[in-house]
Nucleic acid binder design. Structure first.
Lengths: 175, 175
DNA sequence: GACGCTAGTGGCACCCTGTGCCAATATTCG
DNA sequence: CGAATATTGGCACAGGGTGCCACTAGCGTC
């Protein structure tokens, strides 16, 4: 609903007042449902993080670190066909609107933490150490690069781009 | 000057009004020197980017891609001993204050572009392609991970952390 | 020195996001 | 039904950021 406004009027040009009016609630109430205007675009991202965490935890211990990460990240970003258009819209906003681009970093921080903790648990190291932290950053970088590429090329397959990018990036993760 | 306020009072608690007053100018004039309060912390970052670009361009063509990137990034972040404390302060703010953390993404975008363009020029590919873009993200991830580690451990050597992190990350950059 | 041009400055009003506070209104439970 | 409790909405406010305009400082020219 709000997304419709964002895509027609533009994110910056849409005020919280507008969104609230469209939703039939007051401005004040809007801020009880969303911590910020930015958060509207992200939906239930934190729930998705739980899935990612679970998916990583479920990886067989015999599976190489890089493979486990790749599979989890790819499936984390798998989409039902009818959601592709919406998701493309969403990601397009996140990666192109400065305000959202900036805000994304705060969302990604948690995402990186999930990856770092998994890597730490696998290597028996401190999640705050260089290797797990680096792994989080590299995996994130790969994912974002894949998304940018996906948005730039409508014909491209997100899943493939992600697999390729994560694959390459994981070369730097192996101890 | 403004940094002093940030480190004593805190970034969020310091208003633009405060900064302007401390600098002996008006609020309105402040915004003619800085596009935003966030930008105060970044100083002349774009000038530094020019150096990075030049440093990369100056790398001998025979030097492997990864080595060229590592050397350029390490020297880009080299500091005179008397600037270490200030820089630590600055980076600590950038990496811990949410508002600055978010804003940093916008700064990093240019940084990544520099790396991507260099990689593209080396591999004769499109700077907007997956590989150069991925290289930008991986190098950035490595650099940020190194910085986080540096801040977490006062005894650590930034140069070494950067070299290590970039070294690992560049495994994913080689064609 | 007087004049006019220009760049820098500051003040003002304004919009927007985000938050604290409190009254009003639903909703649920006894 | 009545009381306890969420949910809501209105209001006022702080703070970042911007457009507009008047004022002033500086500087070259005559």
């Amino acid at each position: 609903m709000a997304m419709r406004l964002f895509s027609t009027v533009g994110f910056d040009a849409t005020t919280v007042e507008d969104i609230a009016a469209a939703a039939g609630i007051s401005r004040r109430t809007f801020f009880r449902y969303f911590a910020s205007k930015n958060d509207v675009v992200w939906g239930r991202f934190d729930e998705g993080l739980g899935q990612l965490r679970a998916s990583l935890a479920a990886a067989p211990a015999t599976q190489p670190l890089g493979d486990a990460l790749r599979e989890a990240i790819v499936s984390f970003n798998a989409l039902a066909p009818d959601q592709v258009a919406v998701h493309r819209q969403r990601m397009s906003l996140i990666l192109s609107v400065p305000s959202l681009q900036a805000h994304s970093t705060l969302m990604y921080a948690e995402w990186r933490r999930v990856v770092a903790e998994f890597v730490a648990s696998r290597t028996g190291s401190d999640p705050g150490g260089l290797q797990p932290r680096l792994a989080g950053h590299l995996m994130l970088g790969a994912a974002v690069a894949a998304y940018e590429q996906w948005l730039a090329d409508p014909a491209a397959e997100l899943t493939e781009l992600l697999a390729t990018a994560v694959q390459r990036a994981s070369a730097g993760v192996a101890s």
